[in-house]
Amino acid sequence: MSTATLDPALADLQPPAAAATPTSGGLFTGRLVLTVQTPAEAHETKKRSGSSDGAQTYDTPVT
């Protein structure tokens, strides 16, 4: 992978610099731990299926 800066004439190919996010600014303490989600964590709905539609409703999720 090349890390050289693109020719300015191709500036529209370059994505913008990543903006600082609130989570990078000291909102939290402790280590940032990154994990691989299980299929249930990654794929399952957190709502009861009362409304039975794939699109989101405003049923309160299960808590």
Partner: peptide
């Protein structure tokens, strides 16, 4: 796989709604 964060403690003056 895209990696995901675990919950963390808030800083004492952490303003969640501002974030």
């Amino acid at each position: 796989p895209a990696l995901h964060s675990a919950p963390r403690e808030l800083a004492p003056d952490g303003d969640v709604l501002a974030a």
